[in-house]
Design a protein around this nucleic acid. Sequence first.
DNA 1: CAGTGGTCTAGACCACCCG
DNA 2: GGGTGGTCTAGACCACTGC
Lengths: 238, 238
Amino acid sequence: MKRYEEVYKDIEKKILSGSFPAGSYLPSENELKEEFLVSRETIRKALNLLMNAGLIQKKQGKGSMVIERKLLNFPVSGLTSYKELQRQQGFTSKTKVVKLFKKKINALDAERTGFPLDSEVWYLLRERLIDGKSVVLDEDILLTSFIPNLTVEIAENSIYDYFENELGLEIAYAEKEITISSVNDEDKLYLALSTNDINVVSIKSRVYLSDSTLFQYTESRHRVDKFRFVDFARRNKI
Amino acid sequence: MKRYEEVYKDIEKKILSGSFPAGSYLPSENELKEEFLVSRETIRKALNLLMNAGLIQKKQGKGSMVIERKLLNFPVSGLTSYKELQRQQGFTSKTKVVKLFKKKINALDAERTGFPLDSEVWYLLRERLIDGKSVVLDEDILLTSFIPNLTVEIAENSIYDYFENELGLEIAYAEKEITISSVNDEDKLYLALSTNDINVVSIKSRVYLSDSTLFQYTESRHRVDKFRFVDFARRNKI
DNA sequence: CAGTGGTCTAGACCACCCG
DNA sequence: GGGTGGTCTAGACCACTGC
């Protein structure tokens, strides 16, 4: 593991466990440099990552204060898979694969997904159930050229884990869009909607690999009463 | 201006103007180092900022490729004020101040805002109008200890501009939460809702200064049909 | 004033990509 | 093997904070 990762992990652990409580200051960069026996730049790299993660706030002349995350506890933003979220947040849910087959991209799909016409893709539709009720409907469209095999078993677990750790794909970034959409037939069919639900929350994403190739399009449709998106944002100065 | 800021701005300009088109590679770090007459670390700092901004994708052994931002064009995430968004995205809208007065935080407000009981705050309610129709209702609660004066004129323009450039406040970060909420009486009164609108999108934020003090609580209520949230997210490896 | 973080440098070595 | 970006270092100077 890289040195700055070790420093990051160590300090993160101490913050989360309460050894560095919210509102307190971390040791200075010079002290941390001595403690970890690395250069100051390495310490600074780790601290900047902690700052971006919303764990500390640095202030010139003062130090690095541990941030208190109040009401809005768990970050649900970023590029994190459903399984990872579940693990982080400690809730348990079940994933049910509704559809899984190969197809070729038609004109309509090309438009919304960004994949070229006639590309061969996996089409995957999954329900996410909490307390036995289906609250999220996940549609995934994935290039078969990157994912030769995809089974129901993999799709019931984390497809990201499979892509990254089995196939060695480097998932780099995503463009996401959240809108409110009218309930459609598929929503009615699979989501446990109440009779007066007329809207669902739609999250569309295009996911890219580290060489900037598009490899996944995904749309999640959420019951409005179960939807919550939490974000930590820093002010851009530049 | 700092050297890395100059490098960032220069490259950003060349990307946005098309001198570095999407899909092409930037000059290598060593070439940029020569061109700008700075050290490689300074170049790297600028490039990492461009990467976080979603403008380029770096790849070890290959280079820094300019990212093509397809359908999902304009980032609406992060910590950016309404006026700034408007300017960036080129749409014009009008802001109408509905309420502006001082008050003391009661028990209910203390709970939702995070301000201590009995703190003196500004209470500000604004409509955002597009094409003459009110599509967003913005409620702001701000500590008077940081903002001694707040006028209708300031509130009709950018309060952030006033805070940062007039008062010298350093806005650092925010916790945000997006949920779907039922229409309430105030929504009915001010938003141009249609008769079958039963939901609005609620964005609650707590905004902190660089010394980690909470100074603003804000809730935006959006008409569901006018709501769109666009985000660029990077996969965390650490 | 001493201590803090912010910027910047010159140089080294490594991991990766590709011809 | 030569070029790319990734990590890490030791050191310098600056800007800000608080006593």
